[in-house]
Design a protein around this nucleic acid. Structure first.
Length: 728
RNA sequence: GGGCGGUUAGCUCAGUGGUAGAGCAUCUCAUUGACGUUGAGAGGGCCAUAGGUUCGAAUCCUAUACCGCCCACCA
């Protein structure tokens, strides 16, 4: 019996009901899919942060991924799309710290244990929200396999990974100059530093026979050398010399006028100095500058730390400056130098300043004891995977930045001085060994440091081990995502054996290096396989004016407001329609409106066809009519083009093609031209066009197509459109 | 400094060698027929600029300009 359709399509009355239909069917889980399915198609979601709120980039990302997944499922693949959440170490910690600040508390007021509880509460309260928002977008993920990077199993996988790297000798602890965020009080990686242009001063300071420029005169107190380019003829005669130069005496009390003090500085020659810049000579502060630290290492220079972890001058800076914030010390020392006649001039200067990606505080480069992962071998694995096409980057233009980033990679600082995250499986002997009576000599064999997933004991004494307070960089755990979610490192895991390696992953370009690269080398190292075959770097959604969409800037648009206004299918179709080969997508709401109209058009085509063919007609769910009408041939051509386009991630082309064909070829032409005809051929053709269009449009507009499908009287028992056979 | 995108109608963008396209906006007509969330049609473009290749260039090449992004040692 054909049912009378309402005049217009109403998304709000449909979407929740249809999504429930899919969930109840169980078809999002691969084992519930009907028929013999030999080939698999597997993908993991980019796990959103527990801090997360749905933004337009997410909406685009999961829509595109869903289009591909839905097509594959209809094509008969045993399809798995695995959902999950990321604990988001530093981001989540900051979020909860902000929440605490509103209560007038800091994390230190709570203590580590209680603070972690607060983060867990946060996760319970808000963490799942974004997944529910994803449901509104209609994603066809297997909810029975939901994973979280802080799941017990996942934590074990992370510790196991650390141990394995350590066994290989690739994990080491060492003091390095790293990026230190004073506010977050942790080290952060190079990728988490944003360089922001700012107005600064360039100070020209006299160093004996030279004058040289700096933006940070306060670091003068930590200078241990001067450096010039080895080929610079002007300074060749000074290279190797120990110069005695006038400097400010930092032992003079602050209240007294500044005094001159002689200091000795070695002059070294180093390639990294640009002879063209300024006076062609630089001061070297190995403790407080990343480049200077490298120079210091190359020339075996002493390193004097003068700034502490709170961004204040320490004892080495002398009583005159000790305890001052760096910015205050800068004012004082430049005044002092001026008074002593050691300041030649001060100029305005446009300068890039490093700021924390998470909290926007100024980054202070500091020497600090951190844990590192050696990247040499791992980078090779990642380079190989892409060079040999084991992993294909789409669009291809990302290959070059990918490869060159890996070729210049430095060791990865994987430790963070945070409370929220995976604690390092590293244990330290408490300061003193407690000898057992009669075994005093064995103390020498005691291990100060042990790598272990469980609390170790000492064979030789009674001292206890305490676990390192550091946690791992949040990307260390995300790097394991495609296999840890499937049960790795348990080799017997059924899912791991059946669904790994995966086929596809997609993300924004912003996390290509942070995440994608690291998944690839982790996968290659731990599983000997690339974790996926294809990466699709989807466009970044910008505002209509080309600005970044950001909640704090007030330029963000909530995708869910659009689903309410236009319907989810409209949002999905509009976003797909705008996905072309470009790297930025300026979001245009008009296109969502177009999607809404298109959904309604489709609805009315169905309405027309149902009336036209009559209530006794049975729709063939999978058959091409013997019609000679040209449109039947064209429909087949369109089907095959759509399949290819989706396969090649040309979502926009596919959407354009479907729109034009359905609206203009089917509705405007074929339907108009056959209005007077009522023969079987016309009925069969109309039915075929409708059925095929519904199938092809289903990945883009799953709700309206499934809803129409449910109203068609079919020749066989009703099956859901979501598992119907893909045309061509 | 190196690299990558973009520059096409008022707006947002498709189009990659063969007579300029879509959606939205504007205007005219159709007056209820599956859909007015519609149909038919119109206006509107030196396809950033300058050279080059070609029978032919929005499309390929080379420069330049502007916008945006990424990477990097900017003292």
């Amino acid at each position: 019996m054909s049912q009378e359709l309402p005049k217009t399509y109403s998304p709000s009355e449909t979407e929740e009901r249809i999504y429930k239909l899919w969930l109840d069917s169980g078809y999002f889980s691969p084992e519930n899919l009907p028929g013999e399915r030999k080939e698999k198609f597997v993908s993991a979601i980019a796990p959103p942060n527990i801090t997360g709120e749905l933004h337009m980039g997410h909406a685009l990302e999961v829509t595109l991924q869903d289009i591909l997944i839905r097509m594959k499922r209809m094509q008969g693949y045993k399809t798995l799309w695995l959902p999950g959440l990321d604990h988001a170490g530093i981001a989540a910690q900051n979020k909860v710290e902000k929440q605490l600040a509103k209560e007038g508390l800091s994390r230190h007021d709570l203590g580590r244990e209680k603070f972690i509880k607060r983060v867990q509460e946060w996760k319970e309260q808000y963490g799942g929200a974004i997944l529910n928002q994803f449901k509104r977008i209609g994603i066809s993920v297997d909810w029975s396999r939901l994973r979280y990077t802080m799941d017990e199993d996942y934590q074990k996988a992370v510790e196991y990974a650390f141990l394995k790297y350590h066994e290989r000798g690739w994990i080491y602890q060492g003091e390095r100059v790293i990026n230190w965020c004073i506010r977050c009080s942790t080290s952060i990686s190079d990728l988490e530093v944003n360089y922001v242009p700012e107005k600064a001063k360039l100070y020209y300071i006299k160093y004996g026979p030279f004058t040289l420029a700096t933006v940070r005169p306060e670091t003068k107190l930590g200078d241990t050398a001067l450096a010039v380019h080895p080929d610079d003829e002007r300074y060749k005669k000074y290279v190797g010399a120990d110069l005695e130069v006038d400097s400010v005496d930092n032992s003079t009390p602050r209240e007294e006028p500044p005094q001159i003090k002689k200091v000795k500085l070695k002059v070294v020659a180093d390639e990294s100095v640009d002879p063209e810049f300024g006076t062609g000579i630089i001061k070297v502060t190995p403790a407080h500058d990343l480049t200077d630290s490298e120079i210091g290492k190359r020339h075996d220079l002493p390193s004097v730390t003068i700034i502490d972890r709170h961004g204040k001058m320490n004892g080495n800076a002398g009583v005159r400056y000790e305890g001052m914030k760096t910015t205050h010390a800068r004012e004082l020392i430049s005044k002092d130098l001026e008074e002593l006649g050691l300041m030649e001039k001060v100029e305005d200067y446009d300068h890039n300043i490093g700021r924390c990606d998470r909290c926007n505080s100024v980054i202070e480069p500091l020497p600090s004891e951190q844990w590192f992962l050696k990247m040499n071998e791992l980078a090779k694995l990642a380079i190989e995977a892409v060079a040999e096409k084991e992993v294909v980057l789409n669009p291809q233009r990302w290959e070059e930045p990918y490869l060159s980033w890996l070729k210049n990679i430095k060791d990865w600082n994987i430790s963070r001085q945070l409370w929220w995250g995976h604690r390092l499986p590293v244990w330290f002997h408490e300061p003193k060994c407690i000898p057992r009576p009669g075994h005093e000599k064995e103390i020498e064999k005691c291990e100060e440091k042990k790598i272990s997933t469980t609390k170790p004991t000492c064979k030789y004494c009674d001292a206890k081990y305490t676990q390192s307070g550091d946690v791992l960089d949040t990307w260390f755990s995300s790097a394991l995502w495609p296999f840890a979610t499937l049960g790795w490192p348990n080799e017997a895991s059924k899912d791991l054996n059946e669904y790994y390696p995966t086929d596809f992953i997609t993300s924004d370009r912003g996390i290509l290096f942070l995440w994608q690269v690291r998944m690839i080398f982790s996968g290659k190292f731990f599983t000997k396989k690339a974790p996926f075959k294809n990466i699709f770097i989807h466009p970044t959604v910008l505002t209509k004016d080309g600005k970044r969409m950001s909640k704090s800037l007030g330029t963000g648009i909530d995708p869910l407001l659009l689903t309410e206004k236009y319907g989810t299918d409209a949002l999905r179709f509009g976003l797909s329609y705008q996905t072309t080969g470009v790297q930025d997508m300026r979001f245009n709401e008009d296109v969502i409106l177009m999607g809404k109209k298109f959904a309604n058009k489709l609805w009315n085509i169905a309405r027309y066809v149902l009336i036209k063919v009559g209530s006794d007609y049975r729709f063939e769910v999978d058959k091409t009519p013997k019609s000679t009408d040209k449109i039947v041939t064209k429909m087949a051509e369109v089907s095959s083009l759509i399949s290819n386009n989706i396969e090649e991630y040309k979502f926009g082309e596919a959407a354009h093609l479907l729109y034009d064909f359905v609206w203009h070829d089917i509705a405007d032409k074929y339907i108009e031209e056959t209005k007077d005809k009522d023969d079987k051929n016309t009925h069969d053709t109309l039915a075929y066009l409708l059925v095929t269009s519904l199938k092809l449009l289903h990945p883009f507009m799953p709700f309206v197509t499934e809803e129409i499908w449910s109203k068609l009287p079919t020749n066989t028992e009703r099956e859901l459109l979501v598992i119907s056979k893909w045309p061509s």
